[in-house]
């Protein structure tokens, strides 16, 4: 797709889309939204990039090797955060019992384990969506 207007508009919109996605991920515990919605929005911003500028340039910007790593370690991150509870002598994936600082309710740093898990889930959902688009959007294999 070689349209001039599309490229210029995409340059303006893309950073805002990414920032909005990360905002939804980070504020998932004090406002509507959450890690899944934010992750899908971040993924859609990269999908927009590779739709407007071509799939090859998208793959240069974000190679499949990095996506695979992020996807695998995002799943592992959830397990590691759960094992912290076991090391502290509490059940798997426990939040308050494992001694996480709950913080002041309503602030960005509240929630302890919840915001950490949310960041991991959001990033791995984003990489999964981009992987799905790369696998399906290839023109001719």
């Amino acid at each position: 797709m070689r349209d001039f207007i599309l490229k210029r508009v995409a340059v303006i919109i893309l950073p805002l889309m990414s920032i909005y996605g990360f905002y939804v991920i980070l504020h998932g515990h004090v406002s509507p939204g959450g890690s899944f919605a934010g992750g899908i929005i971040v993924g859609l911003s990269f999908i927009t990039y590779s739709t407007v500028y071509g799939l090859e340039r998208g793959k240069v910007k974000l190679p499949e090797r990095i996506l695979t790593l992020v996807e695998s370690y995002g799943t592992l991150w959830y397990g590691i955060m759960g094992i912290v509870g076991i090391l502290k002598g509490a059940p798997f994936l426990s939040n308050k019992l494992a001694g996480f600082n709950l913080g002041e309710p309503g602030s960005l740093t509240s929630g302890g384990l919840i915001s950490l898990l949310g960041i991991g889930v959001g990033i791995r959902v984003a990489s999964t969506i981009i992987t799905l688009f790369y696998a399906m959007g290839e023109e001719e294999s």
């Binding site: 919605a37 899908i40 969506i129």
Partner: peptide, 14 residues
């Protein structure tokens, strides 16, 4: 249920 609204809008577009 605004949580579900945001998720559904994003997932539907995806």
């Amino acid at each position: 249920t605004p949580d579900l609204a945001i998720t559904e809008a994003a997932a539907g577009i995806c």
